[in-house]
């Protein structure tokens, strides 16, 4: 009864991993692998001479660096939300802020387009308030690509990412707070000395897991928000693989880039797992 499922996993997941072998062949569409020339590490060596790689790697690392620099935001969001005493308002914020997570990237793109494009509502407001006549379009401004895309990504994920911390906070023993208050601690000190240390382990675990994904920024958001103006700054590794492989049909080279990326990610995941085992005694995967 379990066998058909295992065959399915084999076909849908493992055979594509076997497809990594394309990276050492000169694969051309329409030919079988046996008809293709074996080229060894040619395509892996090409990565180092490809003049696009420094650019897309920089973009990837900048997006990841910004992401890591603000990974504490969901935690701060949860702590601040916990300070809201009006229960119904707190629940409302939690509900509303989670909605964007369940909206597809196409919708997010459509909303951003409606708001920020030259004929968008932002320009309408600026115009109505007597602002400049020249329309602005923050989605087509090469100087603020990183900021705008990070803001949009946070809009989509902040509320959702904070749920895990909100749950962690709600499981903190209330007696801790009560005795701290008796000892004269205010709410700020309670948050700093009780709430924060209680949820910090969760933060560290999530951070360790995410570090291995530093090169995996995904492609949906960048694919949609890419235009002729933002292209040089928005093209990340995942998107580059897509462009080389599916748009330019350079299958072998795109596979080599993808394989390299996967190997680095897996190595980093094991490293993170090892570090986690050292510092907290239990593995994360």
């Amino acid at each position: 009864m379990t066998l058909p499922f295992m065959v399915l996993i084999l076909l849908m997941n493992y055979v594509p991993i076997g497809g990594w072998i394309l990276s050492v062949f000169d694969y051309r569409a329409g030919l079988s692998l046996f008809q293709c020339e074996f080229v060894g590490l040619k395509y892996f060596k090409m990565i180092f001479t490809d003049r696009n790689i420094p650019k897309v790697l920089t973009n990837t690392l900048v997006f990841s660096a910004i992401y890591f620099a603000i990974t504490w935001l969901p935690m701060a969001f949860a702590i601040l939300l916990n300070e809201v005493q009006h229960t119904r308002f707190r629940k409302l914020v939690q509900t509303v802020s989670t909605v964007p997570h369940f909206i597809s990237w196409i919708i997010v793109y459509s909303l951003a387009f409606a708001l920020f494009s030259t004929d968008g509502v932002l320009n309408l407001f600026i115009y109505k308030l007597g602002g400049s006549e020249r329309a602005t379009n923050i989605l087509a401004n090469p100087d603020i690509v990183y900021t705008v895309q990070t803001a949009i990504a946070q809009w989509k994920s902040l509320g959702w990412s904070s749920i895990i911390y909100i749950a962690a906070i709600s499981s903190i023993d209330q007696e801790q707070y009560e005795s701290a208050v008796i000892d004269g601690a205010g709410r700020f000190r309670c948050a700093w000395h009780i709430t924060l240390p209680s949820i910090l382990p969760t933060y560290v675990v999530l951070l360790l897991i995410n570090i291995s994904g530093i090169l995996n920024t995904g492609y949906e958001q960048y694919f949609l928000f890419k235009n002729s103006v933002t292209a040089p700054k928005i093209e990340v590794l995942d998107l580059y693989v897509y462009r080389m492989g599916l748009q330019l049909a350079d299958y072998s080279y795109a596979t080599a880039v993808g394989v390299t990326k996967s190997v680095i990610s897996i190595t980093m995941l094991f490293l993170a797992n090892y570090i986690a085992r050292k510092i907290r005694g239990s593995a994360i995967i």
Partner: peptide
Amino acid sequence: ITMYISGGMIPTFLVY
């Protein structure tokens, strides 16, 4: 294991 390793976009496309 399939949670951590995948074939990636291009091999998956060609296999499918």
